[in-house]
Design a binder for these strands. Structure first.
Lengths: 356, 356
DNA sequence: TTGTATGCGTTATCAC
DNA sequence: GTGATAACGCATACAA
């Protein structure tokens, strides 16, 4: 049976009020009292009950980070940074995995969920813009959206300029002299914002360069995992005129694509150049190392935590949008080279800037 | 202001007791009452406060999963499975990242941590056996150890037979006809159990095969990340007589090793065969695909959750040890082949068995 | 500066 | 089957 505040008070011959003051570091406590209480606390091995404290104060000190799948490296790396950033300002993080389940996502946002014990949620959503806007923003808890863009300003979010990122990636491929440029990751049946924006950027880069947009080069991917990238490449290679470059909407898709091209007996980048998005660590060690668009994950994490803390402090403040920088990182999968050991692209993590 | 039980009671003209009964699905409630209460609940959009419930019942419904780094794929994949397994039995999971900080680990175990709001912890430890045993098991919360072995039976744990796994991996390399077999991942300065056990297995396999154990072939690795594997290989290749095979204590080390061998202008497996441990998805797509010892992560997750649930239900029950099966999965990094497209080793996840 | 008393929203123990 | 009421452990308004 753990000791309570009252136990300590009895032991130290003081009131619970005083003990509480000591525990929460209240200023106006005499040194004598403080020592007496402190002694009792240690003798009884007293530790405050966070649940009771929360019931009283209404704050849990816990943030939720909601991601589709925690074992997708980008989300895992994001989670790592978020946990660290949150710790700095005294928050713990609870990771929630939606598994692409839209009901689960909605439940979290609307607060229907019964086990809602966090002060705010950092949400890396799949749910559509439309659905989010449908929700009554008043009743739901503090939310910061991650990675999305183009909301109407009702929610805080730390966004990526998806359109520009996609355009930059595609432009990089065009700059290499490629003309048959495919894209993997579109999701025509759903109205998720991110893939749509990336497709828009991809197409605008082609158009700007005077290249025609070929529908058969726009390969959908159910999820953004390696197997999806692998399968998409198989489809592309079966085309009468296969692409000579592929822009993958995620690095993980690209890892699958890399292997698929290899399994087809072709070379990267000689036959097909490949670029991804995310700059996960895996891509710095793969063969060939993966060209990518780096998203500044520490930046995203820090700003997300700062935003949610501000939102919790003042629920009525206006929504803020922060755009995280991105940068094209060319490596072997587009530049080639290093066919035996340049240790290319293994540089440690840089701070990406917005410039390409 | 969210509605409370009392609000609902007033609205429905019943006592709070009755409302509580309806909410928690109590049996003996008349149909008429139930409907009346249900209506009031919906009208007021009432949702029970989990904090208050927890204060009363003493149970949070939350488990902590403690791992060194969430962005290490093995832990991310484990986390995914644990979250899923926990959801089945009605638990949520809070992921805690210790960042290799032993104080942090100890704090979690001894319950010094102030924000302790979970019913039990699944612990994938770095902390030593000795330190764990020092702690007073009575005062700490329900714990299940993951991946460790050879405790004295005071803690539940879901273990891997690390010695055998390492021996099997090494034996696989020996079976290929390799004689200069190195190992990466030892940590001579610390007394972590896992690396010690793997080293023991590695050495016993060599000895059994009549090969000499060469100290210079036992490469330490500070952590188990790609960069550590990369650097260790550099050291091994500088040896007067470099190895012709390497057993890496984790797949992630192996991914770094693969790239390092390539950067040195050598081939895997022709010049150096490589095998890892964990069977992370990344290794099924790498070039060459990675031979590994598969640990049955779903098995580990399910048993861990079952154990912790049992422990929570009966804190005084005897400690139980479960040993998860493992299996050597040979792929291109030891077998070779597929130098242009066999799609080898891309089979979907099997249930590994203990047989090699 | 410290003590007393009330309430946070539930569940559970009694009665009826 | 349902109603009143006492905890759960803490923080704080109000008194002293």
């Amino acid at each position: 049976m753990p000791a309570t505040l009252r136990d300590v008070a009895e032991r130290a011959q003081v009131s619970v009020r005083t003990v509480s003051n000591v525990v929460s570091g209240y200023q106006h406590v005499s040194e004598r009292m403080r020592r007496r209480v402190q002694a009792a606390i240690e003798e009884l091995d007293y530790r405050p009950n966070p649940i009771a404290r929360t019931l009283r104060t209404g704050r849990t000190g816990v943030l939720a980070l909601v991601v589709p799948e925690i074992d997708v490296p980008y989300f895992a790396e994001l989670a790592r940074e978020v946990i660290n950033a949150a710790a700095v300002v005294g928050y713990r993080v609870m990771i929630d995995q939606t598994g692409h389940d839209r009901d689960h996502e909605r439940e979290l946002l609307t607060g229907t969920d019964r086990t809602m014990l966090f002060d705010g949620v950092l949400f890396s959503p799949l749910v559509t813009t439309a659905e989010l806007l449908e929700m009554d923003a008043r009743t739901s808890m503090p939310i910061v959206l991650l990675g999305e863009h183009d909301f109407d300003g009702r929610y805080d979010h730390v966004a990526i300029d998806n359109v520009r990122a996609a355009r930059d990636a595609t432009a990089h491929l065009i700059g290499l002299g490629r003309h048959r440029i495919a894209a993997i990751g579109a999701q025509p049946l759903e109205d998720y914002a991110t893939p749509q924006q990336r497709t828009a950027g991809y197409e605008s880069a082609l158009t700007e360069a005077g290249l025609t947009v070929r529908p058969e080069y726009l390969q959908p991917a159910a999820h953004y995992r390696r197997a999806d990238g692998y399968d998409a490449v198989a489809t592309l290679l079966a085309l009468p005129e296969p692409p000579d470059a592929i822009f993958c909407y995620s690095d993980l898709l690209a890892m699958g694509a890399l292997r698929a091209v290899f399994d087809a007996g072709l070379r990267v980048p000689e036959d097909i150049a490949i670029i991804g998005v995310d700059d996960i660590e895996e891509g710095r060690y793969s063969r060939p190392s993966l060209s990518t668009v780096s998203l500044d994950t520490p930046f995203i994490a820090q700003h997300a935590v700062a935003r949610i803390a501000a939102r919790i402090a003042d629920p009525d403040a206006g929504a803020v949008e922060v755009v995280a920088p991105h940068a094209v990182i060319p490596r072997e999968s587009t530049l080639g080279g290093s066919e035996h050991g340049a240790r290319a692209g293994r540089s440690s993590r840089r701070r990406p800037s917005s410039e390409i």
